[in-house]
Amino acid sequence: MAGTAGETPELIKVHSGAVEVPYDWHCGPYWSRFFRGLRDEKKIYATKCPSCGRVYIPPREVCGPCFARMDEWVEVGPEGVIEMFTVVRLPYTNPSTGEPLSVPYTDVYVRLDGADTSLMHWLDETDEKKIAVGMRVRAVFRDKRTGTMHDIEHFKLI
């Protein structure tokens, strides 16, 4: 063994350094139409199940509970209701960039008018005393849009 009597042998730890692995993610026809709606029309499109009638946001091909294919598109929002929220104060690393995230920010789950599921996004208010479940909010679109979730800058209280 390394180390002599009376000494604690050194335990070595190795740090990986910043690891960057680039990925390509495919959106497919449903998300692509959703992102094109945000980018080109400032509209939020959802899909409706022919079997149970639920309106899904984000849109997708299959209703999981019914295992049914959805072909009907409907517009939802841009206003809705806060279903739940949290003000994030815990600092952690953004896994997409490796950079520390700046806190606080507010995650909000918005039940957009006409939808049966909620869209997760940011709210432009970080004082929890000013936010309540059930409050109405509205999507704020960016002027410069590129076809991502961030074409909506955030939601604001109305």
């Binding site: 993610w25 998300w31 994030v88 952690y92 896994p95 997409s96 995650d107 997760m120 979730m149 961030h150």
Partner: peptide, 9 residues
């Protein structure tokens, strides 16, 4: 990553 990751703590 394309839909929710940035809003999920």
């Amino acid at each position: 990553p394309l839909i929710e990751r940035d809003f999920f703590a």
